[in-house]
Amino acid sequence: MQLVLLVLHSWAAQAWCVNPRDRSLAVLVAVLWGANFIALDFGLGHFPPFFFAALRFAVLLPVLFFVPRPDVPWKWLLGYGFFFGAMQFAFLFVAMNIGMPTGLASLVQQASAPFTVALGALLLRERITSVQIVGILTAVLGMVVIGWNRAQSAALLPMLITVCGAFSWALGNLCARKANPPNPLHLTLWIAIVPPLPMFAMSAAFEGPTAGLRALTTVFDSTTGWYALAGLAYTSLLASVIGSGLWTTLMGRYPASRVAPFSLLVPVVGFTTAWLVLGEHPDPVELAAGAVVVTGVLLGSLNLKKRRVQEPVLERV
C-alpha cells in the first residue's frame, strides 16, 4: 500500500510540473482520445471494420502534399505505419464490430504501455526497473480478471482481439522509438501511406469486394451514415491530427514522465462518454479489474529514479 501511495504521489508531482496552459492541452488530448472511441463506434455502425480502418488514414493522404517526409529510415516509417496504423486499428475495429464495449475498449488499449516497456527490455535491451516489472504483472492480472469475466458470458474473443491491437500499438511504439524523428508529428501523419492498401485489400477479401464501396455510396441515405461520416471526421482530424499534434508537441517540450500520466485519463473519458452517449453500463467486476489495469499501467510506465539532464525527452510513447 505504501508503494502505491508513493507511486501515486510521484505521478501527481510529475504531472503537476507541467505549466497550467500545457496541462490544459494535455487534458484536452485525453478528452479527444477518450471520446474517439464513440466516433469509432459511430463509424463501425455503417462501415465494415477493415474498410473503415483504411478510410481513416486514406482521408489524410492529401495532407501529405503539404507536409515534408520525416527524415527517418523507411523501414521504421513503414514498420510504425504497419503496426500502429494498420494492425492496431484493424484489431480494434474488428473487436468493436463483434461486440467489444466501447468504454472497455478504451481501457484495454492502455495495455500498450506495459507491453511497450516489456518489449523494449526484450528487443531493445532497455533497462526495466523492479517497479515496472510489478506494474506489468499487475496490469496482466487485471487483464486476466477481465478476460475471465468476459469468458463467463462467451465474450472473450473481442477482448482478446483488443489485446492484440494493444500489442500491435506497442510494436509500433518501438518502431517510432527507433525512428527517432526530428519532428514526431510529420512521422504520425506520414504513416497514412501504409494502412490504406493492405486494409482495402483485406476488406475486399474478408468483407466482400463491394461491401465497402456499397457502404460509401449509401452513406447519405441513413442516419447511421451521417453518424459514420461524423465519426470518420472526428477520428481522422480531431483525434489524429489535432490530438496527436498536441501530444507530440508536449512530448517534445517536457520529459515523457511529466506528460505520459495524462494518458491515464483516456479510459476515464472513454467509460464516461460511453455511459452518457451509448448508455453502456460497465460490469462492476470489470470496473474493479480496470482500476487494477490502470494501476499496473501507471507502475509500468513510471521511472522513480531521477533523470539526468542530458537524457532524451522522447523516451516513452
Rank of each mutant, 00 (worst) to 15 (best):
A118S: 08
L107N: 04
N97S: 15
G231M: 05
A211N: 09
N97V: 00
L107S: 13
F89M: 01
V145P: 03
K305N: 12
Q2A: 14
L246T: 07
A139C: 12
W16Q: 01
L287Q: 04
F200P: 03
L60T: 03
I128D: 00
P62R: 06
V309T: 15
V268F: 11
F57G: 06
V63N: 06
N149S: 14
L156N: 04
R177L: 15
L123Q: 03
Q132T: 02
T129E: 12
V269T: 14
T129D: 08
C17H: 02
L246H: 01
L8M: 10
Q88I: 03
L237R: 03
I38S: 09
A39P: 01
G290Y: 14
A274E: 09
L314Y: 13
P255S: 08
V317N: 14
W11T: 13
R253T: 11
G142T: 05
Q109T: 15
L197Q: 02
A155F: 00
A179C: 10
L6N: 11
L304Y: 08
L314G: 00
N303A: 02
H186N: 13
R127T: 14
V134F: 12
P195Q: 07
L187A: 09
P114E: 07
L287D: 05
G243P: 09
V94K: 05
V163D: 00
A86R: 02
W11N: 02
G208I: 13
A118H: 05
I136S: 11
G135M: 03
F91Y: 09
S222Q: 00
K178H: 11
L64I: 15
V268R: 04
A205Y: 05
H46V: 04
G290D: 03
K305F: 10
A289E: 00
V268S: 02
A58M: 10
R258H: 15
K178P: 06
T210F: 09
M159G: 04
A121C: 10
P255F: 08
L276W: 07
A30Y: 06
